[in-house]
Design a protein around this nucleic acid. Structure first.
Length: 111
DNA sequence: ATCGTGACGAACG
DNA sequence: CCGTTCGCCACGA
């Protein structure tokens, strides 16, 4: 669980791995859960550095930016992320993930 | 220990 | 709503 030297990265991966299907978490949320409310950027960096092998077994697509924005934008990876989210029933509003419905912990049900 | 790097985010204008 | 600026962070060189 902690092969190379990068405890922070590993902790990020461990948390992302637990995001339920059909739900999403924001970079800031993950950072906060790891004890670094200001470390959203580092979380994004951890995912960027995600090796292809690991990415294959990690729901990286369930991590979005503040407000449900897809940080990867229109880039290939961004389109791929949207495709995967839609595939598991995630709804989008104005190009952003509807956090009221699929956001992880906070937010209450919005049916 | 210092520096550059970004799948971030809040504050501005 | 959009683009810019600034702050924050962990990691590798």
């Amino acid at each position: 669980m902690t092969p190379p030297g990068a405890p922070f990265f590993e902790s990020v991966y461990a948390l992302v791995r637990e995001i339920p299907r059909g739900r999403v978490a924001t970079y800031g949320q993950i950072a906060a859960l790891l004890g670094n409310p200001r470390g959203a950027r580092a979380v994004g960096w951890a995912l960027r550095a995600l090796p292809a092998g690991k990415a294959a077994r990690l729901p990286w697509h369930r991590v979005v930016g503040r407000g449900g924005r897809i940080s990867l934008g229109e880039r290939p990876a961004g389109l791929e992320q949207r495709r995967r989210l839609r595939a598991e029933g995630v709804r989008f509003s104005a190009g952003r993930v509807d956090l009221a419905r699929h956001g992880l912990w906070p937010r209450r049900a919005a049916r």
